[in-house]
């Protein structure tokens, strides 16, 4: 097992290298040079010395592989992702600032999705073709079909109209720039349910269907009958055998959860005015804020790779049938 993990981590290095090249190419793809757009946008405030300094710093006159080397060595050696032109601040500051809240929302949403959909999926499979199963199925399909931003608008209206809650953002106005206190944390929690439900609905609906299908496959297998014939009670039987096997595919789904932590749900976050990385990526792409966009693309790619690794390791640990060769 340890060798398997070590080997997989070793494979990460060339993969990350290739990913960083692609991410850098994506930065360079839009036509025009970022200094040109910087100067055209803010002519008066930037003098020639500053332009020359920037040109020097990023080595813009040099060939593309030299530029790449400067960018990647800055990231690897100093954690320097370059500066955002639009914000006029280091990219790393911008990302770190928002990453915390993004993680909180995403992880709570993930927990919400799993906690809600797994029991419902199990119920739906065990009671297949009953009224309860049909009701759950209909609700699931509605949840899958309604676009997130629409749900966001409706729930925001309901929260504002009937619960008098300040909607949009994750904090009440008085807490937005306040330091972390118990009050601020509680304020966050009282605002968190709205984005969590909105962001989690589609995932919950999808996962209910996946769980139901996985479990239906397992329930009819002979090892379930064999365990029943041993005298196991129905509930223990259900959780010890078929549910245990049916959960394995969900673990592999973790791979795409990680990148979604950073890039996912941009539109919903914009509608809800959430201070997460989704809207940041969206805006940076619109504004051709290339180092910010490029760094976010790189981050998303790295998280995809790491997510795949984590889910592979978890699966290898959970499912003995996976050969570690």
């Amino acid at each position: 097992m340890i060798w398997y993990i070590a080997r997989r981590i070793l494979y990460l290095i060339p993969t990350l290298l290739i990913v960083s090249v692609i991410a850098f190419l994506v930065i360079q793809l839009p036509p025009g040079d970022f200094l040109a757009s910087l100067i055209s946008k803010a002519e008066e405030t930037i003098d020639q010395a500053q332009v020359d300094a920037l040109r020097e710093r990023y080595g813009l006159d040099e060939p593309i592989y030299v530029q790449y080397w400067k960018w990647i060595s800055g990231i690897v050696a100093r954690g320097d992702f370059g500066d955002s032109f639009e914000w006029n601040r280091p990219v790393s500051d911008l990302i770190w600032e928002r990453l915390g809240l993004t993680m909180v929302i995403s992880l709570v949403t993930l927990a919400f999705v799993w906690v809600v959909s797994i029991p419902i999926g199990i119920y739906s499979a065990v009671k297949k073709y009953t009224i309860g199963d049909y009701i759950v199925t209909v609700i699931g399909f509605i949840g899958l079909a309604v676009p997130n931003f629409l749900l966001a608008l409706v729930l925001m209206y309901v929260a504002f109209r009937y619960f008098g809650q300040s909607v949009g953002g994750l904090f009440s106005p008085e807490y937005i720039d306040a330091p972390w206190t118990l009050g601020r944390a509680l304020d966050l929690l009282s605002h968190l349910w709205l984005p969590v439900i909105i962001l989690g609905t589609a995932g919950t609906a999808a996962l209910i269907r996946v769980m139901r299908a996985n479990l239906l496959d397992e329930l009819s297998k002979l090892y379930v009958d064999a365990a029943r014939a041993r005298g196991l009670s129905e509930l223990r039987l259900l959780f010890k055998y078929p549910v245990r096997v049916a959960l394995n595919p969900l673990v592999s789904a973790l791979a795409w959860v990680f990148p979604a932590l950073v890039s996912g749900s941009a539109i919903t976050s914009i509608v809800l005015n959430l201070q997460t990385t989704g809207p940041l990526l969206y805006r940076s792409l619109q504004a051709q804020d290339m180092y910010l966009a490029g760094s976010l693309v790189l981050l998303v790619s790295v998280l995809t790779i790491v997510g795949t690794l984590v889910s592979d390791i978890l699966l290898a640990w959970l499912d003995p049938r996976i050969q570690l060769q």
């Binding site: 002979l222 090892y223 365990a227 014939a229 041993r230 049938r321």
Partner: peptide
Amino acid sequence: RGREISMIFQEPMSSLSPVH
């Protein structure tokens, strides 16, 4: 079940749990 009467099945491949 299992105490007074036990049962074995047609396919030993699938009558054992794959993950236990």
